[in-house]
Design a protein around this nucleic acid. Sequence first.
DNA 1: GGGCCCAGCTTGTTTACCAG
DNA 2: CTGGTAAACAAGCTGGGCCC
Length: 363
Amino acid sequence: MAAEQSWLPGSFTKNYSWGSGIGLWHLYQAIRVGFQEELKPVKRKDFRARVAHLDRPDFIPLNYFLFNYTRDNKDYIAVDELVFQALTARHSPRFDHLALFAFNFGYAGHWRTIKPGQRYPTLWAKNYIIERVADVFRWNTKLVNADDIESFLRSKPQFKAKTSYRKVATNLAYLYRVGGLSALEAPRIERWWVDALFLALDRIVGDRMAYGLETSSDSLPSLLLRSNFSELSGPKSAEKTFAMAHLLSLYTICGKAGRFDPSQVQDRVSIELPDYYWQQPNNNAPQGAVHPTNPRILKTIPRECSSLAEKAGFRIVYEDDLETFNTKDFIATQTRRAVDSLVHDNIKSTLSPEELHKLTRGN
DNA sequence: GGGCCCAGCTTGTTTACCAG
DNA sequence: CTGGTAAACAAGCTGGGCCC
């Protein structure tokens, strides 16, 4: 992505009527209605028709938060991590933070009538986050406000807007406030961050595919680096860096963006686990994959992917546990399991529970 | 300062019309 | 009846003003 290209605000001079006290619920609702609660790509025009009765500008979800692609001369909205979270989880701040990340990351894909600037529709917000929030403010989001955004935009010749500096600045400050930008300050790994990593990968791969480029798994780390994922997803830390390696292998083994298509996952299972007896899951709720070295590395995945996740070294957490998943309990269980297996193998441990505890946490 | 409304622009698509 | 072209229309926004 060329940094020197124009930053166009497009319809972000409009208001979406976010309302107060409900976060980005209207976006969540638009996605659920637009997809009719099905994890299948939907035609752009069908999405519009379905959300028409919600009486909000449909191009805000479509052109700023979701991902578009064209196939056989028809425009579709992709099923990606943001759609997955909207359709499989209750609305929560976790969704809002993921949506804010999607907005700042700013990949809208391709559609037939796309105009200049719409492929990456939020370069002004993205660069505000990178240059001001991450670099200058060190993620102290208390310093974010409309005045600061406006003066940033006025200082940037790339930002092409005749009169709308103030409107864009106030709308962006408002979006950040209702969506909870301050939560992105978290130095440790949180679930929205794990989801955001998958979303970034979906969008990077999808953007390249929409414009005719294949992406090998080997190239994902460098593409991720160049995408400014780390600058856009809160303070950097060693914990996040370690987690990225594990999560990249989980993303790859689950089939990247193909993880939402059960037949593609089934094909992957037969390749990765030739002896695995495939059973149609009797429950479509997603499961959690948690990494034994750090229980904060918890990713919801489609149920069909669980055997693949285990192959990548993750443990499966059941759906009912996810809402209340407790890091301490998980560590305790892991420690007990480790002790049990030592006892079972008739090995006398010379390690104290504390030492085992450290071992099972790794890193 | 956000919500709301509307005029108007650009681009793409459909229809109308005409020559051959 | 066919192909080409232009006019009409519709989609998809954008900009701006007014209100509370």
